[in-house]
Design a protein around this nucleic acid. Structure first.
Ligand code: FES
Ligand code: FES
Lengths: 145, 145
DNA sequence: ACAATAAAAGATATCTTTGTCTTTTATTAT
DNA sequence: ATAATAAAAGACAAAGATATCTTTTATTGT
């Protein structure tokens, strides 16, 4: 197990890549994205479709088409991506899998767990999509395996 | 997605239940455990088999048999259970799914992510199995959905 | 020895996630 | 209009996680 599903990992990496490309003034196709984040092309296509439908990214069909982001898009926190792909279980659910996480019927780990989960949520809520464009352009951070 | 796999959630809840039962001086069978933590019986059986094989819990066949824990067992951190069932990805892997998490080739989230992961790891390393026996006996914490 | 008990082991089934392939729809440039 | 491009949509395949069922092995009490 890892924090995010494969789909969500691809989604995050892809959105970062798209954001940088938009910053550089160009739309990008699935193929280019998939190559640069090392993900299966067709599978990534499905994921981007979803993100596009949810308004997290934009897409344009036809020649010179591809994926890109708007000013509004890149100001959004990455928790939007995580919620959209993996749902809210990670950010609000009980760590031991009880039907719901609650103060009055807590699982043994609740007290400790709650804090970690809140921190993760806080982090994802506060990091915006555009935040890494410069680091990406400078090659300071990686999107490829 | 949630932090742990279903298997791991069952494992943790079961081990807590077994630990309390041992504390109360009795071995417990799969059936009783499954009922009390609300998990599928046969599936839980497999998980307990694995934990038993790894020496995290003990088992005894035949009449008056069942699962129990030793003094050594209950002093172990619950990270042992998590590692045994879900592997190390959650505790050491890259949050964005890069082949490995590293300082010199970090993913965009690395800087933030690292801390959260370390805290989760720290928590799991420091919480011992026996730590909740009293709370469980007093009904302060729950193992049932 | 025998019957009863309970975990271990093996085989199989179902569901979800991940991944691929083909066809359709929209857009652009010629 | 037509051809080329690229995403959207749909159908399908493979793998892994979850779950069930049956048979075997070990242990106990009679
Ligand atoms: S009840 Fe389990 S984490 Fe809150
Ligand atoms: S490289 Fe991604 S978390 Fe460290």
């Amino acid at each position: 197990m890892s924090f995010f599903s494969k789909s969500c990992e691809y989604a995050l990496r892809a959105v970062f890549y798209i954001s940088r490309s938009t910053q550089e003034g160009k739309k990008v196709g699935v193929k280019e994205i998939a190559e640069n984040i090392q993900s299966p092309e067709a599978f990534l296509g499905k994921i981007l479709q979803r993100l596009s439908k949810e308004g997290i990214i934009q897409s344009a069909k036809g020649p010179n088409g591809g994926f890109f982001v708007t000013e509004e898009n890149i100001k959004r926190p990455i928790s939007d991506i995580v919620l959209s792909i993996d749902g809210k279980a990670l950010l609000t659910g009980c760590g031991l899998g009880l039907k719901e996480c609650s103060e009055d019927k807590p699982c043994p780990l609740h007290h400790y767990f709650k804090d970690i989960r809140e921190q993760l949520k806080g982090m994802l809520d506060n990091i915006t999509i555009d935040q890494f464009n410069n680091d990406l352009i400078k090659g300071k951070v990686m999107l490829r395996k």
